[in-house]
Amino acid sequence: MPVPAIEVQSLSKRYGQIQALDSVSFSVPEGETFGYLGPNGAGKTTTIRILTGITLPTGGTARIFGHDIIRETIESRRHMGIVHETSNVYDDLTAWQNLIFTAELYHVERAGRDEWAKELLETFDLFARKDDLAHGFSKGMKRRLTLAMGLINHPRLLFMDEPTSGLDVQSNLIIRRVIRELAGEGVTVFLTTHNIEEANLTCDRVAIIDHGKIAAIDSPERLKKTIQSVQSVEVGFDRQVPEIKDGLMNIPTVNEVRKEGDKIRFFTEDPSAVLPAIIAYAEREHLRVLSLTTCGPSLEDVFIRLTGLDTENDRRPLWK
C-alpha cells in the first residue's frame, strides 16, 4: 500500500484556553490536490504550520511521506515546498537572489539549479525582472515569486496557503495553470483557500474545517450531492421588478427568493415545479425572460451549510 503524502491522526492544538484544532484526522494520497476550506479562525493556518513543522501540536500525529513531522522534521521538510499565506519574499533581494537563497536553504544541487531557477522565473512571467529588487514588485508579482520559491526544490508535496487571494487576473491565471500542471506531474498539493470556486475547479477532494474540527471530507461533487435540497432557478427579466415580490412569494415549493445583481434566484427542492410558475408570472406581469438557469448546489452552498454560516448571516429570505 503506497505511503500517503500526508497522514494526520487526532491532531490537536491548544493555545491557552483556545482549542485551535480538535482531534483532526485525514489522509492525502500522493498526487492528489487537496483543498482545505474553512472560515477565518477555523484552524487552516494552524494545520499548515503543524504539517510544516513550524508549530508543535499538543496532541496527535502528522506524517509526511511516512516521516513523523515532530521527530523527523528535517527529513519531512525535504519533500515539501511551502507557499506561505503572506508573500514573504525578501524585498531587498532581487527575484534571482530570492530564488537562489531558497535553493541554498533547501540544499538544491548546483548542477541544473540555475537552469531550473530561470525556467521558474519564465513560467511565472518574471524573468525580465530577475535582477530587480522584489521591493518594486506588485502584489501579484510577489505572489508569483513566492510560488516560484516554493517550487525551487522540486517538491513532491506543495503547501499553498491562500495562493490566489486578492490577486490580479493575470497572476490568478498563471497560478491556477501551474497548480493544474503540478497535479498532472503527480505533485501533491495541499491548498487552503477562501475561494470556494477555486477549490471546486482545482481540487480532487476538499475538507471543510470549522471551529478546529473537520466538518466534511469528500470530492466537491459528492459533497454537493449531500445537499440536493439547495437547488435554485436563476431568472433575468428585462426590467427591474421589485413590486412583484408578493407574486413570487406565493410560488409553491420555493423556499427562498433572493435578488442577486440584476437577477432573481429561487431556491427550491424541485426546479421543474418552479419553472411554469415563473413563466406564468412573467406573462401576467408583461415581463420578458432574458435568461433562465437551473443551478445545482454549489460548493459554497455546502460550505455555508456545514459551517453554519446560513443560520448566522444572510440566509434569511429577502421577501419571504
Binding site: 513550524i54 528535517i74 521538510r77 525535504r78 506561505h84 503572506t86 519574499v89 536553504l105 533547501y106
Partner: peptide
C-alpha cells in the same frame, strides 16, 4: 514582521 522568518524556520535545516 515581514514573515520571512517563517521561511527560515520551515526550511529543512536544524
Amino acid at each position: 514582521r515581514m514573515k520571512t522568518f517563517d521561511r527560515l524556520i520551515s526550511a529543512p535545516i536544524s
